[in-house]
Design a protein around this nucleic acid. Structure first.
Lengths: 167, 167
DNA sequence: TGTGAAATTAGCCCGTC
DNA sequence: GACGGGCTAATTTCACA
């Protein structure tokens, strides 16, 4: 089953909302929050996990607390004919300890890389030594991050039909 | 205590690594993975939570699985003198159900907004009706996301001194 | 502060509706 | 598919080193 074919009912949506707010909520409390029996809740969560709606659980870490107070978004354009170098570029970027995420995008730029560094000096070294020195990098812009807000829990779209069959 | 003052020893670092890989790992297994007793592990994790190193736990959801297969990064420039409008803009963007995150940045643009939509048509409507129609938005570029890679677990910087006092 | 053991609690696998 | 019971296993608390 492809994850995109999964039908979600209102209970599933409530479960996803709660698990995004607190990924370690006890099954008992989760069941109470969404109004079903704990045993049923185990089934629901297991199915959401199995069908790929829930891809995993993670602890959120404060970058500042672990010595990485400087964050930036790097927009990168690669050379027009650097296609054979694109995959190695992604591998390279992912291997950097400063890398939080890499997006391959269409638009004015080709890649957007989110990084977290120990200082502005480290950011400078990262940009110069790990990015602009590479031949496939044609242009790079640094967007220093002042502050970040995360959105609310991601809710399904379009609004699910409560009467829709589960699958 | 400020989170940035927290000193982390190698055991803490190992705990953070494991909890980023699997935020719902059982305390018993976590303790075994990092080589301490389960009861000690409870204390360690509680302290990391209390001191702000761990800011929370969350379930990772597949946007495709909940009907939001189209993701984009929107780079936004605001009008030079729109300062009084900046905070309302952030509030507005955060209130959109499509918004995953908002970054206030320095550089060529002022904001970078990560959104997930149900279709390219929805993205179009989002950009036109929720962004470019607002007076404080001077310029917007859409970077459609082809694919995303997440980096490995975020590790502390600089490498912690094993002999360093905890606090 | 870390550890080990006891008491409490939650999670999981049944059967039944 | 949802629910409740009963067993297993985990978490938490406490006294001690």
């Amino acid at each position: 089953m492809s994850a995109k074919d999964v039908q979600l009912d209102p209970v599933d949506i409530a479960i996803l909302r709660e698990l995004q707010k607190d990924g370690r909520i006890a099954n008992k409390d989760l069941a109470a929050a969404v109004g079903i029996a704990p045993s049923t809740c185990v089934d629901r969560v297991a199915r959401l996990r199995r069908t790929g709606v829930i891809t995993g659980y993670t602890a959120q870490i404060s970058p500042e607390a672990i010595g990485r107070p400087i964050q930036a978004l790097l927009t990168v354009q690669v050379q027009p004919h650097a296609r054979p170098l694109v995959d190695p570029f992604v591998v390279h970027v992912r291997s950097l300890p400063e890398t939080l995420s890499v997006h391959h995008v269409a638009g004015p730029d080709d890649f957007v890389v989110h990084v977290a560094c120990g200082s502005s000096q480290d950011l400078q070294r990262l940009v110069l030594d790990r990015f602009t020195s590479r031949p496939e990098v044609a242009r790079l812009q640094t967007h220093l991050i002042f502050s970040t807000w995360n959105g609310g829990p991601l809710s399904p779209y379009p609004p699910q039909d409560p009467a829709a069959p589960r699958r």
